[in-house]
Each structure stands twice: as C-alpha cells, then as structure tokens.
C-alpha cells in the first residue's frame, strides 16, 4: 500500500519492440511489449523518449492505435515519417524488433471515446490523426457497441492511407461503420472529384447531422483540426460535443 502510494506518479518505462509492420510506404506500426501495461482507453497516447549515446534526448507523443484488451497484451503505435523530422524517421526506419524505447503512459483523459456513451460518433481524421480514431473504431468492435460511427479520413494520396485493408474489411462486415476518404493531392482512378481539402459538403454528406447530437472527434495536423472543427460548428454541431487533438504542423 505504502509503496504504491509513494510511486503512484507516472514514470518512464522500457518497452520492447515485438514486431514492426509497414502501413504505407512512409508509416510503420510498432507493436510493443510493455511490462505491467495497465490498459488504456481509445484516444489516449503515450510519450516516447529517445536518448542518444551522449545523453541528448528527444521526446514526442504518439497515439495508441490498438484497442484494449488485446489478447497478447501488446500496445501498438503508428508513426508517420516526416522526412526532416528528428524522431519519426528513427521510429519508422531505424528501430527494429528487439530494440527498446522508453515510454510514459497511457495519458490523456479528454480525447477519449467511452463505450458507455450512447451517442452516434463522427470521426474526422487528417493524415496520422486517424491513429487514435482507429483505436476508437477497434474499441467499438471489441465492445460490440451499437452506436454507429462515421469516419471521414483526409489523406494526401491513396498510397498514404493507413489501415486500408482493415478499414475495408470492417466496413464490409459492420453496418454500423462508414468510411469516406478525402484525397488532398491525388485521388484513386475514376474518383468522382479532383483532389481537395475537407469541406462543408463532405462533412455534411458523410457525417451525422447535428440533430442526431453525435459526439465528434477531430484529430490531425493543427491546421486540419482547426478547419474541420470550424466546419462542424458552422454546420450547427454543439461545440461541447466536439473534441479536438492537434498533432502540430500543417496539413
């Protein structure tokens, strides 16, 4: 008792890379073994800390992509490489199965979906902002929850789509899940529109109407989040039902 009280503070712990797999040519999922992982809610993230030989260290946040419980007790992160980045290229290209990284988490109790919530859900994701939204989609399936989810996923090109096969399969097997893609740089062949950014029409057509009082989760680069949240408000969604998480950078 005394020990837990004293050490109740969140600490850094070593996680071991159990497996790594490419989700796109530039994004990789790291499957982590974290001893004594306490479980997490979809939408939460961890902080990752890397330390160089000379003691220099860098810290970044990464959303948890997987839902809990996971049969093997593993935790998954998906990292999008930014070519001029300090940390992401290391996580996508250098680190290998068997290596260790330090992490702290799970953290964040606001940008989370809870299965007891009865509202329908609109998910707006830009780029790697889809990662915590994917955790919500996966958690909904594990919980066998009936609330319908609609995901609008803004991504540069078809090749950049994360979890493409899994999303296709889930949409096919689950009438309660819809996914609409917005391509900002290049569309698939025969796509009905030219590349464009997320707009009022897309959110109006592929989201839930404000009358349904959906819970809205918006995540991605800072500029994407601000645009998408403004669109929701303009369409009449209650700002108190809109939860946002900014990853930094521009879309």
């Amino acid at each position: 008792m005394a020990r837990t009280a004293v050490s109740g503070r969140l600490i850094w712990r070593a996680a071991t890379i159990a497996e790594a797999r490419w989700e796109s040519p530039t994004a990789r999922t790291l499957v982590l073994d974290v001893p004594d992982w306490p479980g997490h809610l979809p939408g939460q993230h961890v902080d990752v800390r890397l330390t160089a030989e000379d003691g220099y260290s860098a810290q970044r946040s990464y959303s948890i992509a997987s839902a809990w419980p996971e049969p093997g007790g593993k935790v998954e992160l998906t990292v999008q490489r930014l070519d001029d980045g300090e940390v992401s290229p290391y996580l996508t290209d250098t680190v290998q199965a068997g290596d260790q990284i330090e992490l702290r988490g799970p953290v964040g109790g606001w940008f989370v979906w809870r299965e007891k919530s009865t509202a329908p859900v609109v998910l707006l994701g830009g780029g790697s902002g889809v990662v915590p939204l994917m955790a919500m989609v996966r958690a909904r399936a594990i919980a066998g929850s009936k609330q319908p989810f609609r995901l609008i996923y803004s991504v540069r090109t078809p090749e950049d789509v994360l979890y493409a096969d899994e999303l296709r399969r889930r949409v096919r097997d689950d009438a309660g899940l819809d996914v609409h893609y917005v391509y900002t740089r290049k569309t698939p062949d025969n796509w009905p529109s030219a590349p464009k950014r997320i707009d009022v029409a897309a959110v109006n057509t592929y989201g839930w109407p404000p009358d349904f009082t959906p819970d809205c989760f918006v995540c991605g680069p800072t500029t994407f989040v601000e645009t998408a949240a403004d669109i929701l408000v303009a369409l009449g969604h209650d700002p108190r039902r809109i939860r946002t998480e900014r990853f930094g950078g521009t879309s």
Binding site: V107, G108, G109, W110, T222, T244, R246, G248
Partner: peptide
C-alpha cells in the same frame, strides 16, 4: 506551430495523481 492541452497530459500526469487535461 501550436499544439493543444492534450499534449501536456504526460507532463501533468507526472505531477498529479489524476488526469488534469
């Protein structure tokens, strides 16, 4: 290049027993 309060969760959780975000 700003972020939002979600990104402070780890630093605050190192100090407080509850999630402050």
């Amino acid at each position: 290049p700003m972020l939002d309060g979600n990104s402070m969760a780890g630093d605050l959780r190192e100090i407080f027993a509850v999630d402050v975000t």
